[in-house]
Amino acid sequence: MAEEILKVENLARHFTLGKKQVLKAVDGVSFSIKRGETLGLVGESGCGKSTLGRTVIGLYPPTAGKITFDGIDVGGKKTSAQRDELSRRMQMIFQDPYTSLNPRMKVLDIIAEGIDNHHLAANRAERTRMVVELLRSVGLDEEHANRYPHEFSGGQRQRVGIARALSVNPDFIIADEPISALDVSIQAQVVNLLKSLQKKRNLTYLFIAHDLSMVKYISDRIGVMYLGNLVELADSDELFAHPLHPYTQALLSAIPLPDPRAERGRSRIVLEGSVSSPINLPDCCRFCSRCQSKGKECEKGIPPLVEVRPGHFVACCHVV
């Protein structure tokens, strides 16, 4: 069994909205990721998956709970050496390749920013050589180094974003919806790139997305989030074959398959209503307002994440 590279325990991230309103974006989430593994994180907009990713990498301080990355407490007090180590070993790829690259910087400088900060290149020539190597590894050319972001297409920009993340030789990459803004034929290119880089560099991914079929393809394990809680966590094949939480079941049945024959024979669980507001949530199962198998026990507090089968965790009162 590979060692755990990241451990998240009871993590919470709340935002105060003035007065007495609290937005509980992430509320008590625990999981761990092993070295070389890809954990997919899915859920609808507003379920806290992006906030979780940003808290894990240290962009937001956690309200409660603990994040441990290879022995370092991400949310706690760190020495400057530890801070340096974290910012080198954990990197992030953002959703929107149009706004996450500085329009006034050349691609060369965008990618080299991390190299400069961590003094990874001895001189200018080496810096350029490193950037060119990175560009090639993400499928771009040397000549692209001197261009500005607006000269690239969406898929190419996302490649620049990936090259920037790789520039400091990280172990762990958080990809926050890296393919949502891209066209279908380009999505496959980027996903293949991420997968081959993972093999070559032994990377660990936290892959956040809402497109379940892509997540299944890239992830070893998948976590499903609903309103700040992790409701189900399992191996990706297991999750798709035997979804246990009513929300996961509805989510899986709601994806339209690109296969007309299968679509005709399918019965769909259509959820009523929409996700309730994450502000001032009641202290009960977060899904109970939309759940079809809701009972009295659901109002007795947030159900804990329980291992019902080896490696398959569910947070639901009805699944034991």
Binding site: S185, S213, Y217, F240, P258
Partner: peptide
């Protein structure tokens, strides 16, 4: 286009992608 959508069954093969833009 149809091949570049991941099939829910396969996982280990590389995903088919149309090269270029």
């Amino acid at each position: 286009l149809l091949n570049s959508i991941p099939n829910l069954q396969l996982q280990d093969q590389a995903l088919y992608s149309i090269p270029g833009t």
